[in-house]
């Protein structure tokens, strides 16, 4: 074989692998929990997943899509609403979390009720206060639509819209929602430097927050109590609701602190609108390791937290409303 051709082939293969590497694991991230083996990332499937994610056809009356509550400009959280806002103006009991770096999480929802990202989609689809539909109805609607059988065929070589492929496609799209291009990440890659203020904030962060909000994902995804008092109206006991273990009462999954400027309001019930309110809570909270911050330190800490905003992720055209839907609706 021609030597140049060989070289070109090796180069192509290497860049292909690097591309997947970037896609799935940024260099300064740990190995994801969901391995590539289990979740063969495939562009056509992810694109189908994206279309499904933005299509209100998944709800009973075609009014609510996943993106209604998980908007790309809000790091796939929902800013207007403290609590999630679903079909027929139903109000849920929790704040829609940002969706990003999901391949690094071993459980989903604020209380970890769900262990499989693919099956997660069944929860909103069938929840009477979210999309209010039934899986079998959704499958039928997709099958009867003019365009989905074709899209499923393109992605899976099967024009029958099945549960497995529906869930897989949605998962494939969501696995691509990787946020690893904030200023913090550039600093990690030695492409940028923190300002003095950000540096001070980083030290405060490592001292006070990193135990739970562990870098580089800014969460260790464990279940913790961060001192928030129970909301007596919502009576949300967090992880206790899933495990029924008294020791799990009021524990919630530690959320990532990436993209906070886009994903407000904060906490499982969206009780805080600003980061100042959040820090106000932490410095007053009754925690085993109390957090003490002067007002200057609060400013510095927030300066650091803002370096976790990832504009590239928020405005990534691959994640926004799919042009296909515009053409076909």
């Amino acid at each position: 074989m021609n030597r140049n051709y060989c070289l070109a082939l090796v180069f192509a293969l290497a860049s292909c692998m690097a591309y997947q590497g970037v896609r799935l694991r940024p260099a300064h991230f740990p190995e994801p929990i969901m391995r590539l083996k289990h979740t063969k990332l495939n562009a056509k499937r992810a694109e189908l997943g994206r279309i499904l994610f933005y299509d209100p056809i998944l709800s009973a009356n075609n009014s609510i899509s996943c993106a209604s509550c998980h908007t790309s400009y809000n790091a796939f959280a929902h800013t207007d609403h403290r609590l999630s806002h679903g079909i027929h103006d139903s109000i849920g009991t929790r704040n829609a979390p940002a969706l990003m770096n999901l391949a690094w999480q071993h459980s989903f929802m604020w209380d970890g009720a769900i262990q499989r990202l693919d099956a997660q989609a069944l929860a909103p689809i069938e929840s009477p206060v979210e999309m209010g539909s039934k899986l079998s109805e959704v499958l039928k609607k997709l099958q009867d639509s003019g365009y989905y059988p074709q899209l499923f065929y393109k992605a899976y070589k099967d024009s029958i819209v099945s549960t497995r492929h529906l869930l897989d496609a949605l998962m494939q799209f969501q696995l691509r929602l990787i946020s690893a291009n904030a200023k913090y990440d550039s600093v990690q890659r030695s492409e940028a430097v923190f300002t003095e203020q950000e540096k001070k904030g980083y030290l405060l962060f490592k001292k006070n927050c990193n135990v739970c909000h562990t870098e580089p994902l800014f969460s260790n995804f464990s279940f913790q109590r961060n001192g928030l008092p129970l909301d007596h109206h919502l009576k949300d006991f967090g992880r206790f609701l899933t495990t029924a273990q008294p020791t799990d009462s009021l524990l919630f999954k530690v959320p990532s602190l990436r993209n906070l400027s886009y994903s407000y309001p904060y906490m499982h019930d969206g009780r805080f609108k600003t980061l100042y309110q959040v820090l106000g809570h932490y410095t007053k909270a009754n925690l085993p390791n109390p957090i003490l911050l002067t007002s200057e330190e609060k400013v510095n800490l927030i300066a650091f937290l803002l370096t976790l905003n990832d504009k590239h992720f928020i405005f990534d055209r691959n994640f926004s409303y799919p042009p296909y839907l515009l053409k076909n609706k």
């Binding site: 009720a113 499989r116 099956a119 997660q120 929860a123 689809i125």
Partner: peptide
């Protein structure tokens, strides 16, 4: 035979 709201 599947609990959608909490998976399993």
């Amino acid at each position: 035979m599947y609990w959608t709201w909490q998976n399993g």
